[in-house]
Design a protein around this nucleic acid. Structure first.
Lengths: 334, 334
DNA sequence: CGTACGTTCTGGAACGGTCCAAAGCCGGTC
DNA sequence: GACCGGCTTTGGACCGTTCCAGAACGTACG
C-alpha cells in the first residue's frame, strides 16, 4: 500500500490536484468550503507531500547541509542550536553529516550533499582542506561557521574573534599577577590567531621572554602532553592559556598528576565555554565565543547568500567574553 | 546556469539518456567504448545525479533518518559511528536530527523524515513518547537503538543489557567491600531496569536495608543533587552506582564539595563509557555498553526489517562490560 | 539467403509534485 | 443580450531520473 499522493487527495475531495496544491501552499484564492474539503481529505488519508517530488519541481530542497568536523568535540552544539533556530524560522531544514565518522569510510560528504541538491552548505569547524569542498562551494552557497578557513571566493566566514578572545584570556591572567604564562597552541588559522594574539599581549606587557608555547592537538591527550612539556621547563609557568576546553582539561590532569593545585599553583583558561567546561568538577575559566550567536549569524549569512550568490564574501566576527570560573586565580606568591 | 542533467551527458557522449543511466548504475550490458564515452562526458560536465529525481523514480531514498534525543549528552557518539559504518556498507546514507534542538521549535522531526520518505528510521536514546513516532513507525521500518522504549508492534529494539550492566557495577562495588551503596536513578524503562537490577543484587547479598535510591535526571545537575541527598543521610553510603556518566560527574562534584575524597571516601560508578568518563581528570569507572556494537546491530536490524517489514519485532541486547578506572576502590575502613 | 537469437541500445511512460495559461463562473454595465 | 473583469478552478507541461518493452544490430545456423 503506497502512501497517498496529491491525486488521491484531489479525488477524495472532488477537486483537481492543482487546487489541492494551492490549498496546501496556503493560497488565499480558494473558496473556504473547497479548502475545508481538501484539508479534510488530507487528514483522512494521512497525506504527506513527497519532498522529492516537490523539490524536483521547485528546483530547490529547502534543505541546507551541515558539515561537522568532529562530533566528539562538543563545542559545536550551541552553534548548531543557533543555526537551527534561524534556519527553521526561514523554512529550511538542516541535514547533518559528521566528517570524522565519514572520513574513515572514505566517503565524500559534499558529494552526498550535492546529489541531494541542498540549497546551501555550512561548514562547522575547521575541516580538512579538500578539493571537494572547493568545488561544492563554487556551485552552492556556502558559509564557514566557527572556523576561519578555507577562505574561498564566495564563501562567508562567521566566527568568534579569536584575537580578542585570546587577548581576554591572557590579560585576565596578567591582571591576576601572572608573569610566566604558557600557551597550548592549536591547529590551523584559528590556532595561529589565538597564538599570535597571546604573544602580542605578552609583548605589550613586556613579558615576551616569559611566554612559552607548546603545540597541542585539540584533544585532551594533546593538551595533557603539551602541559607536561610546559611544566617540565626549569622555570615553570604559573598559568596556561589553552587552545580549547578539551586541551584545558588535559592540562588540568597534567597539573594534578604533577601534584600542582589549580588554581593555587597553576591557573588555566580554556576556550569555547563548552558544557564540559561547565561541569562542576572541572569548572574551567574559559572564553565564550557566543556560539549560539555565531550559529544564528551564520544562518543569516547563508540566507543572504542564497538570495544573492554573487555578493562578495564577508567575514563576520562575534565578540567573545570571558567566563571566569574556578581554574584561575592569583599566582601562589602574590 | 543549471547543473547538468543526464540528458546533457547523453548528448555530449552521443548516446541516449537510458544508456547513460545504465552506465551509471554499473550495468554489464554496455560496450566498453560507449561506457568510456559516457564516463568521460560525466567527468567533463561534472555531472552529479539528482537524488530527488532518482528517489522519485526508484521509490526509495537510500536514506535513513536518525532521531537523537539530545546531542548534549555524549553517549550516542559511538553508537552513531557503528550505525553509520554498517549503513554505509549497504549503500544507505544517514540523516541526523536532534530532538532537543527541535523540540523547542515545536517541530515534529518525524514529519520531516516522512516527507523525505526515508527508507527507515532509527530512534537513538529514549525519546519523549509521541503519537507522531507511533504512526511513523507504522509506515516505515523503525528500530530503537540504545533505549528500550517505545515498544511498538513492528519496531525492533537494540540496546545494552541494562540489567547485567547494573549488576556488574553493583557487584564490583560489593566485591570491593562496600555494603552501604546508593543509586542515582534515571528515567524511563532504562532507568527502571538499572534500578531494579541494582536492588536485586543488593538483595541477593542481603544488603537490602543498606541500599538507598535517589532520583537523578540524566544530567550532571541532577546527579549532583541526588548525591547531596544520598550523602546527607545519617549513615552515608560509601559507594554510588550512577545512572549514567553525566550524573556520575555530578556525584563527583558533590563529593568534592562535601570534602570527600574519591575513591577513598566514596566510590563511584558511571554508565556508558562516554569520552567524558575517559577524561583523565575524571577517569570514571563506568559500564561500557559496547555502543559501537549496538549501533552496528541496530543498523543490521533495520536492514533486515526493510527487507521484511512484517517480521515480528525483536529485542537484541548486547553484553556490557565494566571499565574500571579511578573512581572505585575499597571503602575507607577495610 | 532467411530466420532465430543474443547483445546493445533507445523511446516513452512513469514517479508526485509545481506552475502557468486558459477556462468557467459570476455579477455588473452599457 | 453582449461584454467585461475579478475570482476560482483546471488541464497539461515540466522537473530529472528509472524502468520496460521493443528496436537495431550483429552472428550463427539451417
Amino acid at each position: 500500500m503506497r502512501p497517498p499522493t496529491i491525486r488521491d487527495v484531489a479525488e477524495r475531495a472532488g477537486v483537481s490536484k492543482s487546487l489541492v496544491s494551492l490549498v496546501l501552499r496556503g493560497s488565499e484564492q480558494v473558496r473556504p468550503e473547497k479548502r475545508e474539503a481538501v484539508l479534510a481529505a488530507v487528514d483522512e488519508l494521512g497525506y504527506r507531500p513527497n519532498a522529492a517530488a516537490r523539490s524536483l519541481s521547485e528546483r530547490r530542497t529547502r534543505t541546507v547541509g551541515v558539515l561537522l568536523n568532529d562530533m566528539r568535540n562538543p563545542w559545536f552544539v550551541e552553534l548548531l542550536d543557533g543555526l537551527n533556530s534561524r534556519l527553521h524560522d526561514n523554512g529550511l531544514r538542516m541535514l547533518l553529516a559528521d566528517g570524522h565518522l565519514n572520513r574513515r569510510l572514505g566517503e565524500d560528504l559534499t558529494r552526498t550533499f550535492t546529489e541531494l541538491r541542498v540549497d546551501g552548505l555550512i561548514a562547522v569547524g575547521t575541516l580538512p582542506p579538500s578539493q571537494a569542498l572547493r568545488s561544492a562551494a563554487a556551485q552552492v552557497p556556502t558559509v564557514v561557521a566557527g572556523a576561519r578557513e578555507p577562505t574561498l571566493p564566495h564563501v562567508d566566514v562567521v566566527a568568534g574573534d579569536d584575537q580578542s578572545g585570546a587577548r581576554l584570556a591572557t590579560e585576565h591572567l596578567i591582571a591576576l599577577g601572572h608573569r610566566r604564562i604558557g600557551h597550548i597552541a592549536g591547529d590551523g588559522v584559528v590556532g595561529a590567531l589565538r597564538r599570535r594574539s597571546f604573544e602580542t599581549v605578552m609583548r605589550e606587557h613586556g613579558l615576551t621572554d616569559l611566554a612559552a608555547v607548546e603545540r597541542g592537538d585539540l584533544t585532551e591527550e594533546g593538551g595533557y602532553r603539551a602541559t607536561v612539556r610546559l611544566l617540565s621547563a626549569p622555570e615553570r609557568p604559573t598559568a596556561i592559556v589553552a587552545f580549547n576546553d578539551m586541551s584545558c582539561v588535559g592540562a588540568l590532569s597534567a597539573a594534578e598528576e604533577l601534584g600542582l593545585r589549580v588554581p593555587r599553583d597553576l591557573s588555566l583558561v580554556g576556550y569555547d565555554n563548552t558544557y564540559v567546561s561547565r561541569l562542576r568538577h572541572l569548572w574551567l575559566t574559559t572564553v565564550d565565543n557566543a556560539s549560539h550567536d555565531v550559529g544564528r549569524r551564520a544562518a543569516q549569512c547563508l540566507l543572504d547568500r542564497i538570495a544573492d550568490p554573487t555578493r562578495p564574501a564577508q567575514v563576520v566576527l562575534t565578540t567573545p567574553t570571558l567566563e571566569i570560573r574556578g581554574t584561575t586565580g592569583p599566582p601562589a606568591g602574590s
